Computed example of a mutant assay.
Amino acid sequence: MTRMTSWVGRNRGFTGAFLLFAALFVGYQMMHPRGFSTAVFIQNANESVVIGFLAMAQTVPVLMRGLDLSVGAVMTLTNTIASHVVTGSPIQQIVGMTITLAAGTGFGLMNGLIVVYGRIQPIIATLATGAVAGGLALLIRPSPGGEISSDLNWALTNAVFDFTETLGFAQDGTAAWLQPIANIPMPLIIMAVFGICVWVPFKRTVTGRTIYAVGSAEGAAYMSGLPVARAKIAAFTLAGYFAACAGLYLAIQTSSGNADINQAGAYTLNSIAAVVLGGTSLLGGVGGAIASLIGAGILRVISFYFRILSIDPLMQSLIEGLVLLAAVSIGALRTLRVKNTLELFR
């Protein structure tokens, strides 16, 4: 009990975000006419994957006191790439997915190299590279289109049972091993495999710990001999990877590609809000990608309420804007408690 209390005390932001998400989600399910059903869970999961991946992408630079304004544009770029290459036979589709993820990861690597060796502030560098990514997306896909396999779409946007049935692993659905997991939404498994299973091991590496150290006190991290430059490059590379995961899933989900620049900007802003809502400090060194998933969940549940409460569409943007403003303001509360101004630069 003491250990749990100590953990909660050290992770108050995450704990508060999780409790808020749980309350909002349970309330939504209770109000929904078909709440607590597999169909509703799958729909909710599908609508949360893209913002979840982008929240994870934004988290890593934020942990170093930086912002990546290109995550939405990289998502859009990889979405258009996927609409061209994720097609054909199953092997060709896997190759296409690999190409898509590599493209986003490579773009993130470029961001990191520019920030480290160009010595440009991340917010400025990624604002410029985001414009480049948006331009490339329009060049690749001037108008919405493309064709993703309908089987791939069905398998990855429904339950585990649908996935196994599409791949021929369980034709009748009576296999004993399948029953306990048959109704788990595949989008959640995708988030776990491509997101959490990448972040958790990375966080425990020297490079991952250095990212936290840089966010807490970059000068001290450098004087301690930690690989600061490598950590910065790795952070933006990982951000590019997560953004590519978002773009790839969006292409599979919609079975097409769309170079929507306005959508890219909206997703970037929402990713920042999700990071802050999850308890990650904009001043760096505190938080994590899993916490940002909770923040993304909060944003999505709020949008779910719009449907069941029949809120005027003209009011929805206002409410979302107020939530975004509140989220960013929460991230700045720490500065109001600082008595010694020098602490702001630590």
Rank of each mutant, 00 (worst) to 15 (best):
G106P: 12
A239M: 13
T100P: 03
I319D: 07
L67K: 04
L24V: 10
A170Q: 03
K203V: 01
L138T: 15
L167K: 05
F242I: 02
Q93Y: 02
F18Y: 02
M223Y: 15
L188R: 11
W177M: 06
A137P: 00
I319E: 06
M31Y: 11
L226M: 13
D260L: 12
S48T: 02
R34K: 00
G146C: 12
I308K: 01
Q316M: 11
A213P: 08
T78L: 09
I272F: 15
T164H: 02
I81Y: 01
L69C: 11
Y305K: 07
L344M: 14
I319C: 00
V198L: 08
V62A: 13
V276A: 11
V62G: 00
M30L: 15
F41Y: 13
T126Q: 05
V115I: 15
Q29P: 13
F236H: 02
Q179L: 10
F18D: 03
Y305D: 08
G295W: 09
M1F: 13
A296W: 04
D68E: 06
L333H: 02
G279R: 08
A251V: 00
Y222M: 14
A213V: 07
F107C: 06
G27R: 03
T166K: 00
V85H: 00
G321Q: 05
G321P: 14
E147P: 07
P33W: 00
F163D: 08
V193Y: 06
I140H: 08
P90A: 06
Y212G: 00
V95N: 01
N46D: 10
W7P: 04
A234G: 10
G287M: 08
A231D: 02
A231S: 15
S256T: 03
V116K: 00
S6G: 07
T254H: 09
C245V: 09
T38P: 03
S310F: 14
Y212H: 10
G145F: 12
G145W: 08
F242D: 02
F14E: 11
L336H: 08
T129M: 01
C245E: 01
F202K: 04
L322T: 13
I99T: 14
A103W: 03
A55T: 04
F304L: 05
V40I: 15
T15Y: 04
V206W: 05
V8L: 12
A170S: 15
R337L: 03
L318N: 07
F18E: 10
P201L: 06
G66M: 00
V338D: 05
L322C: 14
W177E: 10
Y305M: 04
I51W: 12
F242C: 07
R12A: 12
K339N: 14
L314Y: 14
S281I: 11
Q171S: 14
A243H: 07
L333G: 11
L342D: 06
A213F: 07
G66P: 09
A259K: 10
R3Y: 14
